[in-house]
Amino acid sequence: MSIKGTVISQVEEVRRNSGKPLRPLTNDLVLLESGLDSLGLAVLVTRLEDILGYDPFTDSDITVPPVTLGDFIHLYEVAGKSHYVDNGHTE
């Protein structure tokens, strides 16, 4: 599965139990309105680290936090490139 596909399926998984009405996952959806609270977001980042093998928040010095789902996916895609290069893989 692509990085984008992995992120989206995990967002769906984590927010499933939020008990709130859920908005469709589009690139411009503001993360804080996606049904994920702080804890949900924390769980999401941990699950993605276990699946993808990296955590862009810890591995790089981010001074512009992601606001939309598109920003969030982009962060993982960019970090994914350097992760695969560092580990001698090609995508």
Binding site: S38, L39, L41, A42, V43, V45, T46, D55, F57, T58
Partner: peptide
């Protein structure tokens, strides 16, 4: 604890 960049730990 598991380190986490959003909540410090989980």
């Amino acid at each position: 604890p598991r380190r986490n960049p959003v909540t410090g730990s989980l």
